[in-house]
Design a protein around this nucleic acid. Structure first.
Lengths: 345, 345
DNA sequence: TTGTAAGCGTTATCAC
DNA sequence: GTGATAACGCTTACAA
């Protein structure tokens, strides 16, 4: 538990000089620098973060705020953030938020109380104004997957929902499949809105009529997907050629419903999900892949850069998706996915 | 950004008194207490953590160390930890460890540098002696799923691997299935060893001969499960009545291999996994369920209790599992799982 | 280039 | 009960 003073004693230099060697690329003789460094090593000296924070206002900590999660891919985002943080030598103060009051308190604690040097928030349902008011410009904030208002307040990292959905639909259209059923999220969900728009654009780009598409609203859950599809099928409507669900869970739920009615995938209809989760992989489900780790990594780097960089205009980074094609869209004769003989589903 | 002094000025009391009101259940007149509290509220005063840490050595932070994860259920553990931390008013400093050097540095930073009041580690491959040496009794440490040596050094929270595996095997034996193939993890993996032992115990308890059981070593991955099973099937060996894989991923890999050979589950053989992940749920896979959130919650609470509690003997908490029965072990005539008509697989 | 010394905002030990 | 006051361990003007 050596302190700065121990290093002083051992070297004969003042605290100022030691501090200079340790922190700033300041004017210090190469000779003194070496003497200090040697002493530091020999004494096994480690600066105390608490003292540093108090005197220098640097926490070396990145605050991260997540919604209460049951959501597998948030871990991926977290890993990406962790990678960026590690590269910058920062620690991660992670908080899940359960309710708005808790979120506000977390924000105050991270920002005003000086527990972090920057904050990354993911899918937070607080307006920019509210966040700005709480944080009060004490630390930079980066939003991941921010909703609604095209934030001119904070840096934003978002998924390219539009092109992601469009690519899935285009893929189907290219296969000659036009009779598509869209299983969406809640009507007021930003991701869902963008994905719906992407689907529409794909039709328009192909010169096809989007109004023939069936749109069913669900809630992003497995059960929701299953129930909506069951209802649909039992209402006597005709089977679509393909279902494009706006996330994997609903896709898997829909799959269950479809199979329960005796239909097969991809035999009777094609199926596409969104997110490309592990479950999609194992189920052989074609899905729009979102590079969650990259998103975390980029968001964290954006935040880190803002720590000592001058305030520039808020930037928006849109992360592109790709389509992971698997058996759920591969008719046996198409033959391209793995183990086509049993279609993985 | 009011400070303690501002509260002093406003109330006329000294820093000592304010601090007493805020921290200790100390001797303070009810009247002064109220005056101080009012001023605190009015000034919107929030004590700075940095100053507290420096002067009081309390960080109000719980350190959490995870292995680099691609592992969905670690999130669940983290949620459990978060719940416990929130209840205790603690923040979470989370770190993923990539290599041993990084882990050691993290440990030093969390413990010696005083960044946390207690540490929860999950599946760390460092010996107790090493950890103890690094942490040097500065903060309490709790291990989750600790390996090997029955740690008499730290509190431990572990999965009841033995009974978990035994329950799965017993379930099969009760169905009259004895010709079981075990798909294990690496031979030196502690979880795997315990699960194997549990399987053996189940046979012995049932008075059956364990030596007839086929044991195939794999590596806990989907690919591993698939390859080992493919090799097995192609070697011309007879099909077992059931496969019990020591995690869900291998189970799903084995399923793929089995289906590729034209067999059906549960028609031709039963299949059981371990962990009960989301993928198991969607695949209709019977699996040994491990309450990951509980594990995190209990571990964190253990750690939190140690913060100001006297050092007692290290305790070990063994979390019990349960069996999630699904279609992969339900022959059509058994009829009990959901949508039996297509077996969910 | 290096040293002096004044903070940073608390906690806690003494006295009173 | 309450108040001075000395830590806590570092950063950083300002001097030298």
């Amino acid at each position: 538990m050596a302190t700065l003073y121990d290093v002083c004693k051992k070297t004969g230099f003042s605290t100022a000089t030691i501090s200079r060697v340790l922190n700033r690329k300041d004017v210090v003789t190469e000779k003194t620098r070496q003497i200090v460094l040697d002493a530091v090593k020999e004494l096994n000296y480690r600066p105390k973060p608490a003292a540093r924070m108090l005197a220098g206002h640097k926490t070396e900590t990145l605050g991260v705020i997540f919604p209460e999660i049951d959501n597998g891919f948030y871990v991926q985002v977290l890993r990406g953030i962790d990678n960026a943080a590690k590269e910058a030598g920062l620690h991660l103060l992670v908080s899940f938020y359960h309710d708005k009051a808790g979120l506000k308190e977390t924000l105050l604690s991270l920002a005003l109380d000086g527990r972090s040097d920057a904050i990354v928030m993911i899918n937070i349902d607080l307006s920019d104004r509210q966040v700005k008011k709480l944080v009060n410009d004490t630390v930079p904030v980066v939003m991941i997957g921010h909703s609604a208002e095209t934030s001119a307040t904070f840096d934003v990292v978002e998924i390219d929902n539009t092109n992601g959905a469009a690519s899935a639909v285009t893929y189907l259209l290219n296969k000659g499949i036009e009779n598509i059923l869209l299983l969406t999220g809640p009507a007021d969900n930003f991701d869902s809105i963008q994905r719906l728009n992407g689907a529409k654009l794909a039709f328009e780009d192909a010169g096809k009529d989007f109004s023939t598409v069936t749109i069913i609203e669900s809630n992003f859950t497995y059960e929701g997907g299953m129930e909506q599809m069951t209802d649909y099928l039992e209402s006597g409507k005709s089977l679509p050629e393909a279902i494009f669900a706006f996330n994997d869970r609903m896709a898997l739920g829909a799959l269950e419903a479809v199979k329960a009615k005796g239909y097969t995938v991809p035999g009777d209809l094609a199926l596409i999900g969104f997110d490309d989760t592990e479950s999609a992989l194992y189920a052989g489900l074609t899905s729009v892949q979102v590079p969650m780790m990259d998103i975390g990594y980029e968001a964290a780097n954006l935040a880190i850069r803002r720590i000592d960089a001058q305030k520039g205009n808020p930037s928006t980074l849109t992360i592109t998706t790709s389509l992971s094609v698997r058996n759920s869209t591969q008719r046996p004769q198409d033959d391209a996915g793995r183990s086509p003989s049993n279609c993985g589903i």
